[in-house]
Measured scan of single mutants.
Amino acid sequence: MQFKLIINGKTLKGEITLEAVDAAEAEKKFKQYANDNGIDGEWTYDDATKTFTVTE
């Protein structure tokens, strides 16, 4: 399945997509990506659109 991450950071904004088996795997990958890029914020997930959002 394809999942999307919307980044609303203080210095980094944008979207990325990835393939994952389920939402838990996608969340783990997205949070690792955010951590690697210094993004720390409030996370939400919309199951209907398979979209994660992180807002700093």
Rank of each mutant, 00 (worst) to 15 (best):
M1Q: 13
M1I: 10
Q2V: 08
Q2W: 06
Q2P: 14
Q2K: 11
Q2L: 15
Q2N: 15
Q2F: 09
F3D: 00
F3Q: 00
F3K: 00
F3G: 00
F3R: 00
K4R: 06
K4H: 12
K4Y: 07
K4G: 04
L5E: 00
L5M: 14
L5D: 00
L5W: 04
L5V: 02
I6M: 08
I6C: 02
I6Q: 10
I6H: 06
I6S: 03
I7E: 01
I7N: 02
I7Y: 15
I7P: 01
I7S: 06
I7D: 01
N8M: 09
N8E: 05
N8K: 11
N8W: 09
N8V: 03
G9D: 07
G9Q: 11
G9E: 03
G9R: 06
G9V: 08
G9N: 15
K10P: 12
K10Q: 14
K10M: 13
T11C: 05
T11S: 09
T11E: 08
T11Q: 08
L12F: 04
L12I: 14
L12M: 08
L12G: 06
L12S: 05
K13C: 03
K13W: 08
K13L: 15
K13M: 14
G14I: 12
G14W: 07
G14E: 12
E15M: 04
E15H: 03
E15Y: 03
E15V: 04
E15I: 02
I16V: 09
I16K: 13
I16Y: 08
I16T: 04
T17A: 06
T17K: 09
T17D: 09
T17C: 04
L18K: 12
L18F: 07
L18Q: 09
L18W: 08
L18N: 07
E19H: 15
E19P: 11
E19F: 09
E19R: 06
E19L: 09
A20C: 03
A20W: 04
A20V: 04
A20L: 05
A20I: 03
A20N: 08
A20D: 10
A20M: 06
A20E: 15
A20G: 14
V21S: 15
V21I: 05
V21K: 13
V21L: 07
V21M: 10
V21W: 04
D22C: 04
A23Y: 14
A23P: 05
A23C: 03
A23I: 13
A23N: 02
A23H: 03
A23G: 05
A24M: 12
A24V: 15
A24R: 11
A24L: 07
A24F: 11
A24K: 04
E25S: 08
E25K: 12
E25L: 10
E25M: 13
E25G: 10
A26C: 02
A26P: 01
A26V: 03
E27S: 10
E27L: 14
E27N: 10
K28M: 14
K28V: 11
K28Q: 13
K28R: 14
K28E: 09
K28N: 11
K28I: 15
K29M: 08
K29I: 12
F30P: 00
F30G: 07
F30A: 12
K31M: 10
K31T: 06
K31V: 10
Q32D: 14
Q32H: 11
Q32W: 07
Y33E: 10
Y33P: 00
Y33M: 07
Y33K: 06
Y33A: 14
Y33Q: 06
A34G: 14
A34D: 00
A34K: 01
A34L: 03
A34T: 12
A34F: 02
A34R: 01
N35F: 11
N35E: 14
D36R: 13
D36A: 07
D36C: 05
D36Q: 08
D36P: 02
D36V: 15
N37P: 01
N37E: 09
N37A: 14
G38I: 05
G38R: 07
G38V: 04
G38Y: 06
G38T: 12
G38Q: 08
I39W: 06
I39N: 02
D40Y: 11
D40F: 12
D40W: 11
D40T: 11
D40V: 13
D40K: 06
G41T: 01
G41W: 13
G41Q: 01
G41E: 01
G41M: 02
G41V: 01
E42R: 08
E42G: 04
E42D: 14
E42P: 04
W43I: 02
W43Q: 01
W43C: 01
W43H: 01
W43R: 00
T44P: 00
T44N: 12
T44L: 05
T44K: 13
T44W: 05
T44S: 14
T44I: 05
Y45I: 04
Y45R: 05
Y45E: 01
Y45L: 02
Y45W: 07
Y45P: 00
Y45K: 04
Y45N: 01
D46K: 06
D46V: 13
D46W: 11
D46G: 06
D47L: 10
D47Q: 11
A48F: 15
A48V: 08
A48L: 10
A48I: 12
A48H: 11
T49M: 15
T49W: 12
T49D: 03
T49K: 06
T49G: 10
T49N: 12
K50Y: 13
K50E: 11
K50G: 05
T51P: 00
T51V: 12
T51S: 14
T51H: 11
F52P: 00
F52N: 00
F52D: 00
F52L: 02
F52C: 01
F52Y: 14
T53V: 10
T53Y: 06
T53S: 05
T53R: 05
T53N: 05
V54G: 00
V54Q: 01
V54L: 07
V54S: 02
T55V: 09
T55S: 08
T55A: 04
T55N: 12
T55F: 05
T55E: 13
E56H: 05
E56I: 04
E56S: 02
E56Y: 04
E56F: 05
E56K: 02
